[in-house]
Computed example of a mutant assay.
Amino acid sequence: VCSVSAPIRNASGQVIAAISISGPNSRMGAAPGRRYAPLVMAAGKYLTDALVKASTSR
């Protein structure tokens, strides 16, 4: 089993959650970090940005 994860931060920059994908090596491939990290990191940034925007628009 392998996994790739990225942090989700609040407006103060603190890690408050994480997003990840995981699966068996046979399905994730030989270099899952290289393949999936850009997508998972983009999802983490998207969620972080959405949380920060929601907290500053109150």
Score class of each variant (00 low, 15 high):
Ala6Gln: 02
Gly23Thr: 05
Pro32Trp: 04
Arg58Phe: 08
Gly29Gln: 05
Arg9Gln: 13
Ser5Gln: 13
Gly23His: 03
Leu51Gly: 10
Asn25Leu: 06
Gly44Asp: 00
Met41Phe: 09
Tyr46Val: 03
Ile21Gly: 03
Gly29Tyr: 08
Ser55Pro: 02
Pro24Cys: 07
Arg27Ala: 10
Val52Glu: 09
Val40Ser: 01
Val15Tyr: 01
Leu39Thr: 04
Pro38Gly: 00
Ser22Leu: 04
Arg34Val: 12
Val15Ile: 15
Ala11Lys: 15
Asn25Asp: 12
Arg34Pro: 01
Ser26Ala: 15
Thr48Cys: 04
Pro7Thr: 02
Arg58Ser: 13
Lys53Thr: 10
Ile21His: 03
Lys53Asn: 10
Lys45Asp: 09
Asn25Glu: 14
Pro32Ile: 02
Gly13Met: 07
Asn25Pro: 06
Asn10Ile: 09
Thr48Val: 03
Lys53Val: 09
Pro32Leu: 02
Gly29Phe: 04
Ala17Trp: 01
Pro24Lys: 10
Met28Asn: 02
Thr56Gly: 13
Met28Trp: 11
Ser5Met: 15
Lys53Ala: 14
Ala50Ser: 09
Ala17Ile: 01
Ala37Val: 01
Ala54Arg: 11
Ala43Asn: 04
Ala50Asp: 09
Ala42Glu: 07
Leu47Cys: 07
Asn25Met: 07
Ala31Met: 12
Tyr46Asn: 08
Tyr36Arg: 04
Ala11Thr: 12
Ile16His: 11
Ser57Gln: 11
Asn10Phe: 07
Asn25Tyr: 12
Arg35Cys: 00
Gly44Met: 04
Ser55His: 03
Met41Gly: 02
Pro7Leu: 01
Ala11Met: 13
Met28Ser: 07
Ala31Asn: 14
Ile16Cys: 07
Tyr46Thr: 10
Ile16Arg: 08
Asn10Pro: 09
Gly44Lys: 00
Ala43Phe: 05
Val1Glu: 13
Lys45His: 09
Ile21Pro: 00
Asn10Trp: 08
Val1Met: 14
Arg35Ser: 11
Leu51His: 00
Ala31Phe: 12
Arg58Trp: 07
Asp49Phe: 08
Cys2His: 09
Thr56Glu: 11
Ser26His: 09
Arg35Met: 12
Met41Asp: 14
Ala42Arg: 11
Ala31Thr: 14
Ser55Arg: 12
Ala31Asp: 15
Thr56Ile: 06
Lys53Gln: 13
Asp49Trp: 05
Thr56Leu: 11
Ser5Ala: 15
Arg9Asn: 15
Ile19Cys: 11
Gly13His: 09
Asn10Leu: 09
Val4Trp: 00
Arg34Asn: 10
Ser57Ile: 08
Asp49His: 06
Pro38Cys: 05
Val40Phe: 01
Arg9Phe: 13
Gly13Lys: 11
Ala11Phe: 10
Val40Tyr: 01
Ala50Arg: 11
Ala43Lys: 03
Ser55Leu: 07
Leu47Ala: 11
Ala37His: 07
Ala54Leu: 06
Ile16Phe: 03
Arg35Phe: 06
Ala37Leu: 10
Ser55Thr: 11
Leu47Tyr: 10
Val1Ile: 11
Leu51Tyr: 05
